[in-house]
Amino acid sequence: MEKVEKKLREEAKKLLAEKKVDVVVGYEAGTLPLTATPVFITAPEEADRLVWNAFCHHNLAKYVHDLISANRDSQKRLKPEDRKRKVVGVVTKGCTSRSLVIHLQERQYERLDLSILGVPCTGYVDRRALAEKLGGEEILEGSLDGANLKIRTASGEKTIAVKDVLAANCVTCRFNNPVISDVMLGEPAPAMNPAAEYAEIDEFEKLSPEERWAYFQKEMAKCIRCAACRQACPSCYCRTCFAEQSMPQWVGISEDPSDTQVFQFMRMYHMVGRCVDCGSCVSVCPMGVDLRKFLKKLDKDCFVLFNQRAGEKIDFPAPLQDQRMDDKEDFIFNPGGGH
């Protein structure tokens, strides 16, 4: 990983120095132990701030969309020939690359707007899993030591294997190497365990509707409507979210069980064929709502029904932008037989 980091800094420096990109979106060390945080590098000499490690959980495609659309907005009043393209270099792991593909499928910007710095990924640390391993003790200091985390808490030194605290989406990741890139920084990472991808969903489906409803209710009750899930999601780029429309008002803004359920349900449903299972919404949620339990179902359905995985192929329309005469329709009701 240190090798990748070194190459990443070199590549970013080069791109900036040669003015091939206006900015490199990447990660730098956070202010808390064992964290990384998004950073925007605009000068070659700042490229050494970039890091690549097991704490880089954000899906940076979100910022790519933000930066390019902000640039486009700022030039609206210029003549077309005077407008300048803003080229964004972006540190891209597998999930990030699929989000970029979705943006491209949905014509949000052009491939020319991007310079993709591909990084092989072996998963990121889930803060909640780590906290649980530490029994809720505060991390006073920490460092990454190969495949282990060295941590100091009030009760002493601890060593925890990174693989034991990986985020759930990373453990079963099918795309831990970018599906598109301009330059790959390092050898492709070894496969994770995609065979178990839907195991959790399969289990949940076996529960009774009442049990599933009870779980949905319980999880949604944790939500404080801060919208961090939506804001962190690269696929949530609507200028005005349905949740913020006033005419008509689709959902109430209060902390009402039904409104929260409907808000979350519809936000998630908007992810049909558009959720890359990057885990951003889960990792940013301050309350730890188990959104993945539901989002991954959409992913599964998409594959089962339409044989597609979100953001896998650039030259293929997203599932709900497409249809086939022979799509499955087992769910269509037929009174008097054949259902």
């Binding site: 509707p209 249809q323 799509d327 769910f331």
Partner: peptide
Amino acid sequence: NLSARRKFATLKSFLNYIGIEDGRTTFTW
């Protein structure tokens, strides 16, 4: 209706998944 079919296939499945009874929503031609 073909676009709708894809939407409703996933919508119904998702509604069922969170525990809304199957019989609450019906799609047909």
